[in-house]
Design a protein around this nucleic acid. Structure first.
Length: 575
DNA sequence: GCCGTTTTCGGCCCGACTGTTTTCAGTCG
């Protein structure tokens, strides 16, 4: 079963080939919009089963049929008919920065260039010299683009992108005077991975700022440099776009460059209906010619007659309509969290000591945290029952020395039949239990569904850890009936974890959104294996916000007494 | 191709930068 991302990829391929083939802008753009929608939507498989596919914005009869074809056969008629006329390697040519559909179409029809190798050969042989609109600078840029394409890396993880953005901002702060500096784009929206880094800046000396940025020694190449913007490539191939405008339009600028593209299109379509034109330069009243400039983002949304939309929700789904109807939820914030349930120390596979993890958790201002090392089935690093009891004694010794309550816990394996890796009498010694799947990923969908439901029904299981098992950019997760398990979690009062490890980010936000609709609750955890990882809970909060989750949906936003009472209720079967 | 609080037809977000041009098409975000 292809994932949403794989289906979206194919829709984008169709879109690209349509443009190459001379289709009209609005026809191929429809595929682009549908692809973007899929990225943040529930799994297509579930949507089809529920008859909800055509409720997705931008998915009508034609694209809906193409999606169903891709799900059933792995491809679509439209795609195959294009591949009969264009080589699949033409996407390599289109991947070169500076070459778009018009140029790639011309290169193929006029020069027979349909692959990266053919493009290189054509440039080197001089075959392209003298072609209309192809000067020496363009060919030089293409050569550079080919090198970049070959060395290009996959999308960048959130923590890495954030670190690079902070580094760039620090460099800019040391340069010509600026007022505001903030990263925007997919990083600010907390997308799971980041394609490029966008930084917005306000300054009265924009030209000096962009020039300063172009001279950064980490810039391997300057892709574009003008009076208000500058784009560079790092050695890794990561692109950083900087935009500089006056302070009075900071709100407009930040809104524009936070995107997403689809969100901005929906926002601007709404504005056009009200006679307004929205851009990074302000909001133009088309009738009077007046321009409204906004010093903050809140004013932008207010000027358009809608509620403020937090960056994480700007996905181009239904958020603009909800903001007009004033039904944007108050999203959970990091400050709402009173504890972290999921962390490891050197009693299992963590790096730091128990004492160090307790102190570091206390330093983050939590009222409580759970020390949840692995259960015995994790082989060499899992805790035997004796070791678990030793840890429990150690926790008692530490006591409340650091001003934080350490809950006795474990991340207990959910075995292949849905039972747990410790017997009930051992589980009863713990304050809180996370049940996680760490084995037998290749069970059938029905087996895995039954396994997870049985775990939810276990009175000792309070949280299902990293519920899908997916790895960002890698393993897609074991297969199970999401809706059935979410319903079981809601019915039994078992929280679903949103794991903040950058490699996991699990539940994925589209699924978390679906789980919330089913009435489930959530645990936002770091899954830290070292002191420094405790801050990864930020990413769990980000994913939760992308799913529209509020503080009242979150187990570790409860005061300690309420939390313990709730755990006790589930154990007594009165949840 | 999609969509609807003027519409089932006729629209569809907005602007910066580049290279090659004598005014703009193509690319990008």
């Amino acid at each position: 079963m292809p994932s949403n991302a794989e289906i979206a990829r194919k829709l984008l391929d169709i879109r690209t080939l349509m443009e190459l083939d001379g289709e009209s802008f609005h026809r191929y753009s429809a595929f682009e919009r549908a692809a973007a929608t899929l990225e943040n939507a529930s799994p297509v498989e579930d949507l089809i089963a529920a008859g909800e596919l055509l409720t997705l914005p931008g998915v009508g009869k034609s694209i809906g049929a193409a999606i169903e074809q891709i799900v059933a056969t792995g491809t679509a008629d439209a795609l195959e008919s294009y591949f009969a006329r264009y080589p699949r390697t033409i996407f390599e040519v289109l991947g070169v920065s500076g070459i778009g559909a018009k140029t790639a179409g011309m290169l193929f029809s006029t020069y027979g260039v349909g692959s990266l190798a053919q493009l290189e050969a054509a440039i080197d042989s001089g075959a392209l010299e003298g072609a209309p609109r192809l000067g020496p600078k363009t060919l030089e840029n293409w050569k550079r683009g080919i090198l970049a394409y070959k060395g290009r890396q996959a999308r960048t993880s959130l923590p890495r992108a954030r670190a690079i953005a902070r580094e760039a901002i620090a460099y800019l702060q040391a340069g010509p005077p600026s007022h505001r500096l903030l990263y925007a784009g997919s990083l600010r929206r907390q997308e799971v991975t980041v394609g490029d880094v966008d930084i917005v800046c306000t300054s009265d000396e924009a030209l000096a700022v962009t020039a300063h940025f172009a001279k950064w020694d980490r810039a391997a190449a300057v892709v574009a440099e003008g009076p208000t913007k500058c784009s560079i490539w790092l050695e890794s191939g990561l692109q950083i776009d900087l935009r500089v405008l006056p302070d009075r339009v900071y709100g407009n600028l930040l809104q524009h460059f936070t995107g997403s593209r689809e969100h901005n299109i929906k926002l601007r379509e709404h504005a056009v209906r009200k006679g307004l034109r929205v851009s990074e330069n302000g909001i133009l009243n088309l009738e009077t010619g007046d321009v409204i400039t906004c010093v903050d983002e809140e004013s932008v949304y207010e000027a358009l007659g809608m509620q403020y939309i937090p960056p994480e929700l700007r996905q181009g789904l239904d958020e603009v309509d909800r903001a007009i109807g004033r039904s944007i939820p108050a999203l959970v914030e990091r400050g709402d969290l009173r504890g972290d349930f999921h962390m490891h120390c050197d009693f299992s596979d963590g790096i730091d000591t128990l004492d160090a993890m307790v102190a570091a958790s206390a330093a983050l201002g939590y009222a409580y945290h759970a020390m949840s090392d692995h259960s015995q089935g994790r082989g060499s690093y899992g805790m035997t029952i004796e070791r678990l009891r030793e840890q429990r004694a150690r926790i008692a010794l530490i006591g409340d020395r650091h001003g934080i309550r350490t809950l006795r816990a474990s991340e207990v394996d959910i075995l292949s039949d849905g039972s747990l890796d410790y017997p009930p009498e051992v589980l009863a010694e713990l304050d809180i239990v996370i049940g996680s799947v760490h084995s037998a990923y290749n069970q059938t969908r029905d087996q895995m569904t039954a396994r997870l439901i049985r775990a939810c029904e276990n009175p000792f299981v309070d949280v299902i850890g990293h519920p899908t098992g997916r790895y960002v950019g890698g393993f897609g997760g074991y297969e199970f009936d999401y809706d059935a398990v979410f319903a079981a979690a809601a019915r039994t009062g078992t929280a679903l974890e949103i794991d903040g490890q950058a490699a996991r980010l699990d539940l994925p936000s589209p699924l978390a959104r679906r789980a919330k609709a089913a009435g489930a609750t959530f645990a936002l955890d770091s899954d830290a294996h070292a002191i420094d990882d405790l801050e990864d809970v930020d990413f769990a909060v980000g994913q939760a916000r992308r799913a529209g989750i509020e503080a009242r949906d979150v187990l570790n936003a409860l005061p300690l007494d309420d939390l313990l009472a709730r755990i006790a209720r589930k154990r007594k079967g009165t949840a």
